[in-house]
Simulated assay, not measured.
Amino acid sequence: MEHDTYNTKENLPPQASLTGAKKIEGLLKEANTAGMDTCDMDDLADVPSVSTNPKAKKLPLELEEAKLAYKVVHAVATFSVGCSLNLQMVRNAIPNAKIDLTDYMGVIVKMTEPKCSTMIYRTGTIAITGARNEIHASHAAHVLLSQLQAIGYNVGFHNYKVSEISAALDLKFPIALQELYVKYVHICTYKPDIYKPLIFNLPEPDITIFIAPDGNVIFTQAKNREDIVKAIDVMYPILVTFKK
Rank of each mutant, 00 (worst) to 15 (best):
L87F: 06
T189N: 13
G82S: 04
Q88R: 14
A97I: 11
I238G: 04
V143H: 06
R91N: 13
L27Q: 11
Y236H: 10
E62P: 00
F219W: 03
T189K: 13
D214N: 15
K115T: 08
V217W: 06
A140T: 05
Y190M: 08
F210E: 01
S138V: 11
T52A: 05
N159G: 04
D100V: 05
Y70M: 02
A150I: 10
P174Y: 06
I199W: 00
K98Y: 10
L148V: 00
P114G: 11
I209Y: 04
L44E: 08
Q221C: 09
K172R: 14
S166G: 07
G156T: 09
V109A: 03
I24G: 01
L59C: 05
D4A: 11
T129H: 12
H3F: 00
H139V: 12
C188S: 13
T78N: 12
I187S: 02
G156Y: 08
I120H: 04
S117K: 11
H139D: 13
T125R: 01
L87W: 05
R122W: 02
S138I: 12
P114W: 12
Y70K: 06
F200H: 01
K67L: 05
A93D: 06
K115R: 13
Y153V: 01
K22A: 15
Y184W: 06
V90P: 01
M111K: 05
A231R: 00
E113P: 00
I108C: 10
K29Y: 10
L171C: 09
E64D: 10
V229C: 06
I211D: 09
A212I: 05
K115W: 03
F157M: 08
I151L: 04
H3D: 00
Y195G: 05
G20F: 14
